[in-house]
Nucleic acid binder design. Structure first.
Length: 564
RNA sequence: UGGGGGAUCGUCUAGGGGCAAGACAUUAGAUUUUGGUUCUAAGAACCCAGGUUCGAUUCCUGGUCCCCCAGCCA
């Protein structure tokens, strides 16, 4: 834990905030906020920002707000507002009564704009968007003043009031800060503060015909809420001088400090709202909660726990250099969490029939199985054993490679929590040669807990009793993309061309132990020797569906791969 | 050839004028009725060049490379 106080090392933001607290800045108060725009669903990158903002405040005994940055009505929607709140609560954060909206401040923001005009710090420009762009200059050439820059305060006030009143078409006028058209920082070349948008706001209704831009609304919203430290991502670094300018020009009481950090990027996926939306809209995934997506809804459905996501966010740390986290780091976080809490069960994904020839027909024995070896309090359960079983196809090889410790003719293996068996013969399809069933004998003395149970055998297999098994559908997921950085669209190649055609495998006829019959959606399990799975929301009374959250580490797969 | 940031193991993150630390990943071994877990061990890094210094990854100078900015998006 890099940011854990026990490690003694803090990230640069925590260090800075601790200094501010010590110095008594803002009276030693720390107040942060998470400011999503309600125009999309949250993903793991947002989780990093949420965890940072909220835990930093908690650590300093401060507060944190949730604020919807809803200044662009043409893109925003209530559905996102609801969804975002759900996701943050699910992550385990509580903003208590501090839920705010930039749209709550529209009237105050308007008054600040009027002040700016009065003070000669803002003017109404009547140039078109194209003309403004043309006048802005380039990265290397400075811009030129708009002819409207010298408008009188009176005229500006009049025009701005009429903009608000809805007298003008969209785009007819705009309110601009009067800063410096020759600034090397393009954001300071008289940035737009208000634009006319004669569309209803999902929250403010038809009250407004003009809406403030991010650069104007954000610093003032922070100030109005008494935010002490305004954390945002790196791309806003260039906006910091403007953030400062707005607070100074408006002469606010609370002057928040903007601090930037690197956003989270992950391998083999995309994170931008635009691309995510495209994947959903074009049907490349089933929806925003598709388990292959790193949206919070997707991760949740996949079986990731809030704790694992928060741990992961702590572990990746906070810095200013942009990088890409490898997927295994996320997988490690969920394995670690689920290893501690998931009940173990036996489930056969690719069934192969096994018949114990010397086991009495019709006899059923209840085998005692431990629910979670990591947690004695989890107790145990009973699993029925009978003459006909299913084992995993991969667990049988007629012609085994070296170091194959599973079932193979003549070799003894243990059936977990049951008996040691030996394969005697194989029944094959005469046409195809496919293995239809495997016949074994068992040693009655080796029953789990019995006199010979301790006998050393190399392999232990999971199994289910054919007569008692419950059918289930299991969905296996692999990475959505085949390229580490699909967003890097070199040579005009679109990120969608890197979509992994094998990212979803549906196994319609798996056999799981009977204790799973009434498993509830969302419950995590470890299918022994295979991975962590959770009950999917598609599960119905007569159809069980599981998602594989993550596979167990598989050292046999490594050995096998190496020998090839 | 404007401005703003950044560069430490494969990846992420610490540190800091004197043995470069942790996590993930990798490799080897031990334990194991999950080829899981756990444990032990190993390999693995300071962008480059000068300068200051007894000593520079750290300080200075000059480079190189990467990211961001020309929305009436956030």
């Amino acid at each position: 834990m890099t940011s854990d106080s026990s490690s003694g090392s803090k990230d640069f933001i925590r260090t800075l905030i601790a200094q501010d607290v010590k110095a008594g800045k803002h009276g030693g108060r720390v107040h942060t906020r998470f400011p999503p725009e309600p125009n999309g669903h949250l993903h793991i990158g947002h989780a990093k920002a949420i965890c940072l903002n909220f835990t930093v405040a908690e650590e300093q005994h401060g507060r944190y707000n949730l604020r919807f940055d809803d200044t662009n009505p043409s893109k925003e929607h209530v559905d996102y507002v609801t969804s975002i709140q759900e996701d943050i609560r699910w992550l385990g954060f509580d903003w208590e009564d501090r839920l705010f909206h930039a749209s709550d401040y529209f009237e105050q923001l308007y008054q600040f704009a009027v002040k700016l005009i009065r003070d000669g710090n803002a003017y109404v420009d009547s140039l078109s968007a194209d003309e403004i762009r043309a006048n802005r200059g380039t990265l290397t050439e400075s811009g030129t003043d708009s002819p409207h820059r010298i408008r009188s305060v009176t005229e500006n006030l009049d025009l701005f009031a009429r903009m608000r009143a809805g007298e003008f078409e969209d785009g007819a006028h705009v309110l601009r800060a009067k800063i410096d058209m020759t600034s090397p920082n393009i954001n300071l070349r008289d940035p737009t503060l208000y634009r006319i948008r004669r569309v209803p706001h999902y929250r403010a209704g038809n009250a407004w015909n003009i809406y403030p831009t991010y650069d104007f609304a954000h610093p003032l919203s922070d100030s109005l809420e008494g935010i002490t430290h305004s954390l945002c991502t790196l791309e806003f670094q260039d906006h910091r001088p403007l953030y400062e300018w707005v607070l100074n020009a408006c002469q606010v009481d609370c002057h928040s400090q903007q601090i930037e950090f690197a956003r989270l990027n992950m391998n083999y996926t995309v994170m931008s709202k635009r691309k995510l939306l495209q994947l959903v809209d074009e049907g490349h995934v089933s929806g925003w909660d598709d388990p292959r997506l790193l949206t919070l809804k997707g991760l949740r459905r996949r079986g990731y726990t809030p704790e694992s996501i928060r741990t992961f966010c702590e572990q990746v740390g906070v810095a200013k250099r942009d990088g890409i986290i490898e997927m295994p780091a996320l997988e490690h976080a969920i394995r670690e969490d689920l290893n501690r809490r998931a009940f173990r069960v036996m489930a056969v994904l690719h069934p192969l029939k096994v018949i114990i020839d010397n086991f009495p027909e019709g006899q059923v024995e209840d085998m005692n199985a431990v629910n979670n070896p990591e947690d004695a309090a989890a107790g145990s359960r009973t699993v029925p054993f009978s003459r006909e079983l299913y084992i995993e196809q991969d667990d049988f090889r007629e012609d085994p490679p070296k170091k194959f410790f599973r079932m193979t003719p003549g070799q003894e293996v243990r059936l977990r929590y049951a008996y040691i068996v030996r394969c005697e013969r194989v029944v094959k399809d005469e046409q195809t040669g496919a293995i239809l069933e495997v016949h074994c004998t068992y040693d009655p003395d080796t029953r789990s807990g019995g006199p010979q149970a301790g006998r050393k055998v190399k392999g232990t297999l999971h199994w289910v009793s054919a007569a008692h098994a419950v059918s289930a559908e299991v969905r296996l997921y692999e990475s959505l993309f085949t390229k580490a950085n699909p967003a890097e669209e070199k040579n005009g190649v679109d990120f969608r061309s890197y979509l992994n055609p094998d990212s979803l495998h549906i196994l319609p006829n798996c056999q799981v132990e009977p204790s799973l019959a009434d498993a509830k959606p969302g419950t995590p399990y470890q299918f022994e020797r295979q991975g962590y799975f959770c009950v999917d929301s598609d599960t119905t009374a007569d159809k069980l569906v599981f998602n594989r959250t993550v596979a167990l580490r598989d050292s046999w797969a490594k050995i096998e791969k190496k020998s090839q």
